[in-house]
Design a protein around this nucleic acid. Structure first.
Lengths: 246, 246
DNA sequence: TATATTATATTGGTCCGGCCACCCGATGAG
DNA sequence: CTCATCGGGTGGCCGGACCAATATAATATA
């Protein structure tokens, strides 16, 4: 794993306010700014980042959306306790804190996933419509050029939609989104790609034939396999890659 | 002060950019602006809302954080398909779409919850530290003045923290956050408040004695009860209250 | 002295007007 | 017809100004 990968240092975000939001987020998640503590003034931030105050404000608005900070007119900007907030997007930060992928959080993610996804699969087999099936068919059997990560995402997304539970769709997206980097690792392996391919066909069959239990079972197995493979890949491959941001 | 605003409603958000973000969000969730479709220009929005462009930009930044829109430099602002995004906050919008609480989504939320929370409870009983227990004790037995909704939230939050799974804490917060309004309904009922009180004591015992299975069971039962009561309250009590936003 | 009241400073909210960077479609050259 | 060029439109960033909410210090009052 001594590939050139690590030499591609993060390009400074083209959009300044994103870069700023990123840095502040890191500072808060890393604990440099503790919950309840006040951040520097907008004007101070603008000054120290050497940008305009408007730019800082845009960054702060984004962080406010993540429930990572609280902006109080007349008082200042305060860091919130992310353990009392409700923003899954934050987890992405946690997952990547201290540089590299945090194996602990990744494992937690896997467990959470294993609680939900089999149920989604089960419901999909029960509730799927014909058009759901058709869409799934298209992706599974007629999207050869699509790369595997994309394909896999689409399969899961379609299954979730077929389940008839909108909430599940969004939660599932959150998982995929979070697992992002480690997903790449997973699909880098030829064997894993083959496994996914077979999985797609199997789950398609189960859903087509409306076999909820079988669909659930298949999903459970694939998750178990994927979890194992992913954790291996994550712990073996990406060890403490220092994340220099500039 | 001669014109008294008739209804209880609007109290236009004190912060303009929030009001704007809110309206655009509603428009997208309601389907007035379809996925992929382009929104008006920043300048146009500013003009039609009669505000400055900076204000519009701040609102847009927040929506971008919610993954509800995509801002492309040089091209414009586009609505995203929220079924392909990963933001749980959006669900709040779905839950309240068309005015009133959407019973379907609420039910989905309950199901999702029932998949996860018992597991959290189980893990908490297994992994809890002494300080976790102490914190739980304080809330359960020495917070009489605290209102029940707050207390219940704290109990759940502490249990989740005790589970040792940070992800679970955040997901749980998301649930509570989403269920917000319906939770109010639930705790408005004296009988339900009593039920919660007993539940708090029971779950405390199970966690204290490190009885994972019992903890899980208790949680399953309380969820089932709460789901039933909540759905009843939601369908019976809050009928199609029109949500006028101005 | 202790407390209420009033000024004043601090800080976020909004506005103005301008310039730059990027994207895309129209235009014109080959 | 293909391709390079060049606009015009759009978001990104700037700096400076003023308003609104809040916090703090100074002052008046009991």
């Amino acid at each position: 794993m001594e590939a050139k990968k690590n030499t591609i240092e993060p390009i400074t975000k083209t959009r300044l306010h994103e870069e700023i939001a990123e840095r502040l987020k890191d500072a808060i998640i890393a604990g440099d700014i503790r919950p309840g503590q006040r951040l520097p003034t907008e004007r101070e931030l603008a000054d120290s980042f050497k940008v305009n105050r408007s730019t800082v404000r845009e960054a702060l608005k984004k962080l406010e959306g993540l429930e990572l900070i609280e902006i109080r007119h007349g008082s200042g900007v305060f860091a919130r306790d992310y353990l009392e907030s409700a923003s899954l997007e934050l987890v992405k930060g946690l997952l990547l804190a201290d540089g590299g992928i945090n194996a602990g959080v990744l494992e937690e993610l896997m467990e959470l996933r294993s609680l939900i996804v089999p149920r989604i699969s089960q419901l999909a087999a029960r509730n799927r419509s014909d058009s759901d099936l058709a869409a799934l068919d298209r992706v599974v059997f007629h999207s050869d050029e699509m790369d595997m990560a994309e394909k896999d995402w689409r399969v899961h997304n379609l299954i979730a939609r077929a389940s008839g539970n909108l909430l599940f769709v969004i939660v599932l997206n959150a998982f995929t989104d979070l697992a992002g980097d480690s997903g790449k690792l997973y699909f880098a392996n030829e064997k894993n790609r083959r496994a996914s391919e077979r999985f797609h066909r199997d789950i398609y069959e189960a859903i087509k034939k409306r076999q909820p239990e079988r669909a659930r079972k298949i999903m459970e197995e694939v998750l178990e396999y994927a979890a194992k493979a992913t954790l291996e890949a994550a712990s073996g491959g990406s060890k403490k890659r220092a994340r220099k941001k500039e």
